[in-house]
Amino acid sequence: MKFVIAPDSFKGSLTAKQAADAIYAGLKRVFPDADYELVPMADGGEGTVQSLVDATHGTLKTASVLNPLEKSVDAQYGLLGDGRTAVIEMAAASGIQFVNERTKDPLVTTTYGTGELMLDAMHHGAREIIIGIGGSATTDGGQGMAEALGAKFLDKDGQPIKRGGGGLADLAKIDVSAVDPLVAETKVRIASDVTNPLVGPKGSAAVFGPQKGATAETIPVLDRNLAHYAAIIKRDLGKDLADYPGAGAAGGLGAGLLAFTQSVMEKGVEIVVKETHLKERAADADYVFTGEGAIDFQTQYGKTPMGTALAAKEASPHAKVIGLAGNVGEGIDQLYDLGIDAIFPILPGVVDLPTAIKTGEENLTRTAENIARVLK
């Protein structure tokens, strides 16, 4: 009998690897002689770096970069086992966690630190970068990221514009002559499921701006500035990105990456499936265990359990996919028609969130063991 164990992290409780180990411990008690493949997973969001580093026996790197408020912080990224692929979460440098209710302001926050992380990875040998672009504190269209790579953003007097979404209003010219040569040699894979354009009513400022501190007064300013930015990119770089699907992700960082790097957009979980060789490892599987902190109707939209189920069924159509979650929400019935065969909550009873987080490992192990006993 063959088990594939491929969960995402259980946020605040367990990394994907720790979750996989906990499930393995429970199954092993009942099926000690079975074959096991442990494949820590992610969907491009938080935990992707750790999952891919664990899955490929890579290493974590630390770089001193600027956070969204241009204060120096230490941020981590991963160098995968092949030594040539880096994985970065833009939130590590430019995430919403670096601001608070008083300091969040997309007119001034910048993605400069994300560009610094990318450049550091390139100078450590990476020629392919996987970048997850969720959780940003910025709406600068990736201008800061591109500036860190060497691009110059100049006003009508030839002076550098201010960083942040507000400074884009003064942009008159983009000069890419000083961009680091390694940028042209590096493939960038953008892990994002966001399809919003850069500008307009469904654009970056209108849809995502409020959570980053944009107000009813500043949203139109940001949208206008991003439209101006897109027009200058089209004129100076020949790339039309204003309405490009996904360009509005992470405050327009999607547009910035598409404009200034050799990049392609992909679904986050599909990138992780490929990098972990999940399909190959799931060949001839009898049971596939996946999961994350919560499984509900949103799981079908690119979340790890759904991506894992689809990949596993493709590799081994007869395999049964079992989902485990701390919280099982509304709308899970539709998941049964899409590839997940059964879903189980792991909590033993009514507990508060701190207790659920603290007992995640033992709850996963116990639930996996009990399921295994039914299977046996």
Rank of each mutant, 00 (worst) to 15 (best):
Q18L: 01
A22K: 01
I23N: 00
I23R: 02
Y24H: 13
V30G: 05
F31P: 06
F31Q: 10
V39H: 04
G45M: 01
E46T: 10
S51D: 02
L52I: 02
V53W: 04
T56Q: 03
K61V: 14
D74Q: 14
D82G: 09
D82R: 14
R84A: 14
T85N: 14
A86V: 06
I88V: 15
M90A: 11
A93D: 09
A93L: 13
F98W: 12
E101K: 12
R102D: 10
P106S: 13
T110G: 12
Y112M: 11
E116K: 08
L117C: 08
L117D: 09
M122K: 08
H123E: 15
E128G: 10
I130M: 09
S136A: 10
T139R: 07
T139E: 10
D140M: 09
G141D: 14
G142W: 13
G142K: 12
Q143A: 15
E147V: 07
G150I: 00
A151E: 06
F153V: 06
L154P: 11
Q159T: 08
Q159R: 12
Q159N: 11
R163P: 13
R163D: 13
G164A: 11
G166D: 10
G166Y: 15
A172I: 11
L182S: 13
V183N: 07
V183Q: 05
A191G: 12
A191E: 04
D193E: 02
D193A: 07
T195A: 07
N196L: 03
P197H: 06
K202N: 08
G203E: 13
G203L: 11
S204T: 08
A205N: 12
V207I: 14
G209N: 07
G213C: 07
I219P: 02
I219F: 10
D223Q: 15
N225I: 14
Y229E: 12
Y229K: 08
K234G: 05
K239W: 01
K239S: 08
L241V: 02
L241K: 11
L241C: 03
Y244E: 12
A247T: 04
A247S: 14
L253Q: 10
A255H: 10
L258A: 12
F260H: 04
Q262R: 15
M265V: 08
M265S: 09
V269G: 01
I271F: 05
V272E: 03
T276D: 01
H277Y: 04
H277C: 02
K279W: 01
E280I: 05
A283N: 05
A283K: 15
A285S: 10
Y287C: 08
V288D: 09
G291P: 00
E292D: 05
E292M: 02
G293D: 00
D296K: 05
T304Y: 00
P305W: 01
T308W: 03
A311Q: 15
A312M: 06
A312G: 14
A312Q: 07
K320S: 07
V321Q: 05
L324Q: 04
A325Q: 02
G326K: 04
G326Y: 03
N327P: 01
D333G: 00
L335H: 03
L335Q: 01
G339Q: 09
G339F: 04
I340W: 06
I343L: 00
V350T: 09
V350I: 11
L353K: 05
P354V: 06
P354A: 09
E362M: 10
R373T: 14
K376Q: 10
